[in-house]
């Protein structure tokens, strides 16, 4: 790895996100340094998910720039993909593949050489006894934990977690908090959207409402902005 995890930084400047024909947020700045946690707060539709997808590179910003250690992210999206783990609303679990097959596929795709990390990841999230179980038999909470096990199965400095605690019980949320804390202690970064049920000590809060767009009629452009 060219950039040691300890020195990395991830920042966005004056980001604008347009979904469909709607401007979701504009003029949004953030920065994450090694060990930082960013907590995205706001009601439904305020753009938390959009911001995380934008950070992941799934959406391109309509304006503004994302940078990693000062380098533009857009220049090399594959390289950026190698630096992140993205956990979205869907758990991406194939019903006919076993737990270990599901996890090992994503770990390999992210460059994991061996399977010992996948085993450790399953154990950590309390899924080791289910390793040979097909995905279709898992409960919603187990699926979510399997999805989160990707975080540990292959290393990546930046975690982007969209409502990761959905479907998790209290004990599992504690495990998730521990995992995030260890990741940050090791120099990792995390951005989380949550309804504030995950405890992230020292995490910075980002209120999406501050960047919402209030529509005004722009006579010069002849449109609502």
């Amino acid at each position: 790895m060219r950039n040691g995890t300890l020195t990395s930084s991830f920042a966005g400047t004056s980001l604008t996100c347009v979904r469909g024909e709607r401007v979701v947020f504009t003029g949004l700045d953030f920065s994450l340094n090694a060990g930082d946690a960013l907590i995205l707060l706001g009601p439904n539709g305020s753009g938390k998910s959009s911001l995380l997808r934008l950070m992941a590179g799934l959406i391109r910003p309509a304006a503004g720039e994302l940078s990693w250690n000062g380098e533009a992210v857009a220049a090399d999206r594959e390289r950026h993909a190698g630096r992140i783990h993205y956990v979205g609303h869907h758990d991406a679990i194939k019903p006919v593949l076993t737990v270990i097959e599901n996890l090992a596929f994503w770990a390999r795709l992210h460059g994991a050489e061996s399977d010992d990390k996948t085993d450790a990841a399953l154990e950590r999230l309390g899924l080791d006894h289910l390793a040979g179980t097909p995905g279709k038999l898992l409960s919603a909470g187990q699926k979510r934990r399997l999805n989160l096990a990707r975080l540990l199965a292959a290393p990546a400095p930046l975690w982007l977690l969209d409502e990761p605690s959905v479907a998790l019980d209290r004990a599992s949320v504690r495990v998730l908090e521990e995992i995030i804390a260890e990741h940050r202690a090791g120099g990792g970064m995390v951005a989380v959207s949550t309804h504030a049920d995950i405890d992230l000590p020292g995490g910075r809060e980002l209120q999406m409402a501050d960047y919402a767009v209030t529509a005004t009629w722009n006579a010069e452009l002849g449109t609502w902005l």
């Binding site: 604008t16 347009v18 309509a62 304006a63 452009l221 002849g222």
Partner: peptide, 8 residues
Amino acid sequence: MHRFANPA
């Protein structure tokens, strides 16, 4: 930049 940057 914006979708309807210069309709006018």
